[in-house]
Design a protein around this nucleic acid. Sequence first.
DNA 1: GTGGTCTAGACCACA
DNA 2: GTGGTCTAGACCACA
Lengths: 134, 134, 134, 134
Amino acid sequence: MIKVDPTSYFPLYEQVKEEIRKLVMTGALKAGEPLPSIRDLASHLVVNPNTVARAYRELEQDGLIVTKKGKGCYVSATNSPVSQKVLEAHLHKIFDQAIAEAMGLNMKPLEIQTIFDRRLMRHVKKDKKGGGLE
Amino acid sequence: MIKVDPTSYFPLYEQVKEEIRKLVMTGALKAGEPLPSIRDLASHLVVNPNTVARAYRELEQDGLIVTKKGKGCYVSATNSPVSQKVLEAHLHKIFDQAIAEAMGLNMKPLEIQTIFDRRLMRHVKKDKKGGGLE
Amino acid sequence: MIKVDPTSYFPLYEQVKEEIRKLVMTGALKAGEPLPSIRDLASHLVVNPNTVARAYRELEQDGLIVTKKGKGCYVSATNSPVSQKVLEAHLHKIFDQAIAEAMGLNMKPLEIQTIFDRRLMRHVKKDKKGGGLE
Amino acid sequence: MIKVDPTSYFPLYEQVKEEIRKLVMTGALKAGEPLPSIRDLASHLVVNPNTVARAYRELEQDGLIVTKKGKGCYVSATNSPVSQKVLEAHLHKIFDQAIAEAMGLNMKPLEIQTIFDRRLMRHVKKDKKGGGLE
DNA sequence: GTGGTCTAGACCACA
DNA sequence: GTGGTCTAGACCACA
């Protein structure tokens, strides 16, 4: 399910962290559930175990996961389910960047909105959800 | 006018390349016009001249600029003015990434659209262009 | 095996590129084989690692080699073994330059041929291959 | 008559020196004859006068030319007409380099000779001197 | 003044 | 261990 881009300048261990965080945020991984083992995930991502180990280590420092010696890593129980608010804040950041980029290229707001809507449509169709936005 | 983020994982010389490319794409720098000198731009960006030199060198390899010995660097004359098409293709990529991110977080299209519109509004207001989208 | 002339006007990084290219062209380095590490080659050539790094980087941009993160650089697999044709084209260029130079000095073709043959003989003898051309 | 390649790594002022030297060696410029003025040559070569000035200055240091204040530069009278020997020594160097290059590419002497002869033929024909080597 | 090359050496991600 | 980026600073050709 989780992927990583080795050609990106964004470090592999940061990409792994992001992917895990997303799984937790979306509820795909719930509090207390085990993470894949470092070795398994590493071989699945075609990456050195050190890289996954670093990602897990830093996620633990962030309190998102806990590691039990000799047993493995688990989603932290104390980790409150991600509120809609946190999720939205994340999206705000992403959209703000895209908008800033577009405006930096001298696009007018109405043009930006039009293009965005058209792209959104494409994604909706690609996911085979029919013709509407919902 | 042009900025660079030294804390980003995206390399400084790549950031410089991107910034110059944007200036050309938006027409802020037209064919034949001189670029800022390596030393000037470097000191303006608070960056080592070598870093700007590498950016300029790679932009020349890409054919976007030309350098005249002892005189400086110029926007390539052969560089056709960027069509609206190229610009849009660039935007599509950016928006597609943002949308994919949002959908990966299980947002519904209508939610995505709503959030996007709200963010776009904020940017419009921040730019003090009145109250509408245009 | 490979050398570089620090007194030449021809840049060191270009010399390194040429030397590597020659090793690939002659089959001394085959597709998939590892190149010497940047640090090793640099210290062997008595040159700064940055210089070798630039040579390798540009060879990668040319598609001649590939670099694997944290592992090293390898002769590109897609790099078809150099045909006799390419080799000859290279020699043609070199000989043409020498001939043009000689003719620019008003040498007659027969004189040029005579001198060339004498020099070739010397090289053959220097290599201790006996007395003939073969 | 004389040319220069601005894209070469070989410095322009060295190229100018070489060209002048060749003119003297071949007798195109004889002892006592005036050289083109710095300004004329510079504009003819599309080069900055400083560059030609440097070439002339260094040729004077070498004793090949003399400059008379307010009058211009002249081929040095003391400059003995170039003997066949000097000319040959120059050619030897050029051919030796070409041969070394070819042998470095694992060519056999007989192959080298064959290729060279073929190229020489081409040059002869290009100069429209008929079919033979003389 | 302009770019271009090169060195010395630091710091980082990745294996 | 591997390569990649970056800085500080020297020296050079050219305008």
